[in-house]
Amino acid sequence: MAKPNYSYEKRQRELEKKKKKEEKAFKKSSGGGGSSGNSNDTTGQEQPAAAGTPEGEAPAA
């Protein structure tokens, strides 16, 4: 039976951490501000249907 290669696993974890850190630094430098991360939270989501109406039906006006 093969022995687990702990040094390989550790190296992979380190590379993953380094990659995430670089991505975070890139986003921070290109983002331009702290509010840019929060703007995507609401823009890509659909508005909820009016209360009491099933989805796909227009509310009675």
Rank of each mutant, 00 (worst) to 15 (best):
Gly31Cys: 04
Ala50Gln: 07
Glu55Ile: 15
Phe26Cys: 06
Ala2Tyr: 00
Lys3Trp: 00
Pro54Phe: 11
Ala58Thr: 12
Gln45Phe: 05
Ser30Tyr: 03
Lys21Ile: 00
Ser36Met: 09
Glu46Ser: 15
Ser35Pro: 01
Lys24Tyr: 00
Thr42Ile: 12
Asn40Pro: 10
Ser29Asp: 02
Pro54Gly: 14
Glu46Ile: 15
Gln45Lys: 14
Ala25Lys: 10
Ser36Glu: 07
Ala58Tyr: 05
Ser30Thr: 08
Pro48His: 08
Lys3Leu: 01
Glu57Trp: 09
Ala25Ile: 10
Ala51Lys: 13
Glu46Trp: 11
Gly33Pro: 02
Glu9Trp: 03
Gln45Val: 14
Lys21Pro: 00
Lys3Ile: 01
Ala51Asp: 11
Lys20Gln: 04
Phe26Ala: 12
Glu55His: 15
Ala60Met: 11
Gly56Ser: 04
Thr43Asn: 11
Leu15Thr: 07
Gly33Val: 05
Ala2Asn: 04
Arg13Tyr: 00
Lys18Val: 04
Asn38Ser: 14
Asn5Ala: 06
Gly34Phe: 02
Pro48Gly: 11
Ala60Leu: 10
Glu23Met: 08
Lys18Asp: 05
Phe26Pro: 00
Gln45Asp: 10
Asn38Tyr: 05
Ala2His: 01
Gly37Lys: 05
Thr42Val: 12
Gln12Ile: 09
Ser36Val: 13
Asn40Gln: 13
Gln12Arg: 06
Lys27Val: 01
Ala61Lys: 11
Ala2Val: 05
Lys28His: 02
Glu55Trp: 13
Asn38Glu: 09
Thr42Trp: 09
Ala50Ser: 10
Gly33Asn: 08
Ala50Asn: 07
Leu15Asn: 04
Ser29Lys: 08
Ala50Lys: 11
Ala58Trp: 06
Ala60Gly: 13
Tyr8Phe: 10
Lys27Met: 01
Lys17Arg: 10
Lys21Asn: 04
Ala50Glu: 04
Ala58Val: 12
Ala49Gly: 13
Gly56Trp: 02
Ala25Arg: 08
Pro59Asn: 10
